[in-house]
């Protein structure tokens, strides 16, 4: 199996990693604080998409059992969903805190550009 085909059957992973990399690039490279927060969220979304993709099996259903059910159908992996839920809450808290710092810095300096903030401090 050549490299292109190998990547094609893993398209979901590729999309997730691409999102991760885009987010990382914006987070580290963009000078605007709001864009940085967006980059942070895109990066985290990439990781969550990756995790959810790991849990999927072909033709599987959402992992909610029916009462009295003795049937053993194929369900998506619930562990990764639980991990993603925790991850989302962590991402939300980080975002809320980052945004409040951003508001505070903007109210003091009138700018969102990290380079100008650094210059203002000196």
């Amino acid at each position: 199996m050549g490299m292109p085909l190998a990547l094609f059957v893993r398209l979901n992973y590729m999309a997730a990693i691409t999102l991760f990399l885009i987010g990382l690039h914006v987070l580290l490279g963009h000078p605007n604080l709001i864009k940085k927060v967006m980059g942070m969220n895109i990066m985290e979304t990439g990781v969550f998409l990756f995790l959810v993709s790991i849990g999927y099996a072909r033709h599987s259903a959402a992992p909610i059992m029916s009462p009295g059910g003795a049937e053993s159908g194929l369900y998506a992996n619930p562990l990764v969903s639980a991990i993603v839920l925790t991850g989302i809450v962590i991402a939300v808290s980080t975002t809320a805190y980052t945004l409040s710092l951003t508001i505070k810095l903007y109210e003091h300096c009138g700018t969102l550009d990290v380079n100008r903030l650094e210059r203002l401090r000196r």
């Binding site: 987070l27 580290l28 990066m43």
Partner: peptide
């Protein structure tokens, strides 16, 4: 921000 990178 760097902690978030590390966390990711």
């Amino acid at each position: 921000i760097l902690s978030a990178v590390a966390g990711g």
